[in-house]
Simulated assay, not measured.
Amino acid sequence: MKKRMYRFFIDYEKEERWVNDMADRGWNLKKTVVGYFVFEKGTPGQYIYRNEFINRKSKDYFEFLDEMHIECVSKFGGWAYYRKSKSEG
């Protein structure tokens, strides 16, 4: 089951909190593009999400994320959403 929602945030921290609140209710982020979010039904509280401005990040930084089992969910412009299993911290 998928849920598509339109929300526009000026404050990226507020946006991140909202995405994590959705995840706590069992809606895992699958894709996002400015103001448009696609969630998929999953296990409540399975993931922790973070959004980050990734322009000018080095290759080493992305390798570090891979080593830490941090998955890139969606990228648009200079922003990306990452997630990690909540059980791993």
Rank of each mutant, 00 (worst) to 15 (best):
K2E: 09
K2A: 00
K2H: 05
K2F: 06
K3N: 01
K3E: 01
R4G: 01
M5F: 00
M5K: 02
F8V: 08
F8S: 07
F9T: 11
Y12E: 02
E13M: 11
E13H: 11
E13G: 07
K14L: 14
E16G: 04
E16C: 14
R17L: 13
W18P: 00
W18F: 15
V19Q: 02
V19M: 05
D21K: 12
M22E: 11
A23K: 04
D24Q: 09
R25I: 00
W27P: 02
W27K: 04
N28T: 10
N28P: 00
N28W: 01
L29I: 06
L29K: 02
K30R: 11
K31V: 03
K31R: 14
T32E: 10
V34Q: 09
Y36G: 00
F37Y: 15
F37K: 05
F39Y: 11
F39S: 05
F39A: 04
F39E: 06
E40I: 11
E40S: 11
E40Y: 03
K41A: 12
K41E: 15
G42P: 09
G42N: 10
T43L: 12
T43N: 10
T43P: 01
T43M: 13
P44Q: 12
G45H: 09
G45A: 06
G45K: 07
G45R: 09
Q46Y: 10
Q46W: 10
Q46M: 13
Y47R: 05
R50W: 13
R50A: 11
N51W: 03
N51V: 09
N51L: 12
N51R: 15
E52Y: 03
E52F: 04
F53C: 10
N55H: 13
K57I: 00
K57E: 12
K57T: 02
K57V: 00
S58T: 15
K59L: 10
D60Q: 13
D60L: 09
D60F: 01
D60S: 14
D60V: 07
Y61V: 11
F62S: 13
F62G: 14
F64M: 15
F64C: 10
L65V: 05
L65M: 14
L65I: 07
D66H: 12
D66N: 15
D66L: 12
D66S: 15
E67I: 00
E67M: 07
M68N: 09
M68P: 00
M68E: 13
H69V: 10
H69N: 14
H69S: 13
I70G: 03
I70M: 05
E71H: 12
E71K: 10
E71W: 02
C72S: 10
C72Q: 12
V73H: 04
V73Q: 06
S74G: 08
K75R: 14
K75G: 04
F76T: 04
F76Y: 12
G77P: 02
G78T: 05
G78F: 04
G78Y: 03
W79K: 05
W79I: 03
Y81P: 02
Y81W: 15
Y81A: 02
Y82F: 15
Y82M: 13
R83L: 08
R83M: 07
K84M: 12
S85T: 03
S87N: 07
E88M: 11
E88D: 14
G89K: 07
